[in-house]
Simulated assay, not measured.
Amino acid sequence: MAVAEIILSVIYVILGVAISAVILMQEGKSQGLGALGGIADSYWGKNKGRSMEGALEKFTKYGAIAFMLITIAMNVILKSQGA
């Protein structure tokens, strides 16, 4: 169990740093809302899933899910050891 604990802890720290960096790289939601129209009318709004911003949002979403699952797994391991 100690090996699994160490591996999960290392992944947990790396994932936490990666999520923090990706969140800081994302643009604010207020950007792109100018007088010429909203995000939905722009080329980038229509193709957001293919853009860099879309990729960052996907990584944030799936990274946060993985972060929560690792947290739960680490909690279960520690509880089973009686710590």
Rank of each mutant, 00 (worst) to 15 (best):
S9E: 04
G38E: 04
V10F: 13
W44C: 03
N75Q: 10
I70C: 14
Q81T: 06
K46F: 06
I72W: 03
I7N: 02
I39K: 05
E57F: 06
Q81K: 13
S20E: 00
V3K: 14
G32C: 10
S42G: 08
S30F: 13
S42W: 00
R50S: 14
M25K: 12
Y62M: 08
A73C: 13
S42H: 01
L33P: 00
A64S: 15
Q26E: 10
I77S: 07
V13H: 03
E27Y: 05
F59S: 01
I70R: 01
S9Y: 07
L69R: 01
T71H: 12
G16W: 06
S20D: 01
Y43D: 10
F59N: 00
G32S: 05
I65P: 00
G82N: 07
L56S: 04
L78W: 14
T60P: 00
N75C: 11
G45W: 01
Y62D: 01
V17E: 01
E27K: 11
K29N: 11
S80M: 09
I77C: 08
N47G: 00
M74D: 07
N47F: 08
E53S: 11
K58T: 08
K29L: 10
G49S: 09
Q81C: 04
M68D: 04
E27G: 04
A83F: 13
L8A: 13
L24D: 03
G34Y: 07
I77Y: 02
V10A: 14
G82L: 06
V3T: 12
I11E: 00
E27S: 09
W44R: 09
A83L: 15
K58M: 10
A35C: 04
Y12Q: 14
A2I: 10
G49M: 04
I23T: 11
E53I: 05
L36W: 09
G49V: 08
I14Y: 14
Q26C: 12
Q81M: 11
G34A: 09
M1V: 08
A64I: 09
G63K: 02
S80L: 12
G32K: 05
I65N: 01
L33I: 11
A2S: 14
D41H: 10
I6M: 13
A2G: 05
T60N: 02
K58F: 15
T60W: 07
I77L: 15
S20P: 00
L69A: 15
A40W: 03
G54D: 02
V76E: 01
A35D: 08
I19P: 01
I39L: 14
F59C: 06
A40K: 02
Y62H: 12
G45C: 06
S80K: 12
S42A: 03
G32M: 07
V17T: 07
Y43A: 08
A83W: 11
T71P: 00
K79E: 08
L69I: 14
L78N: 14
A35G: 05
S9F: 10
R50D: 13
L15H: 05
A66S: 10
L36I: 04
F59Y: 09
A21K: 00
K29F: 15
G16S: 12
Q26W: 00
N75G: 15
Y43G: 14
S51F: 06
Q31C: 05
I14D: 04
G82T: 07
S9H: 03
N47S: 11
K46D: 04
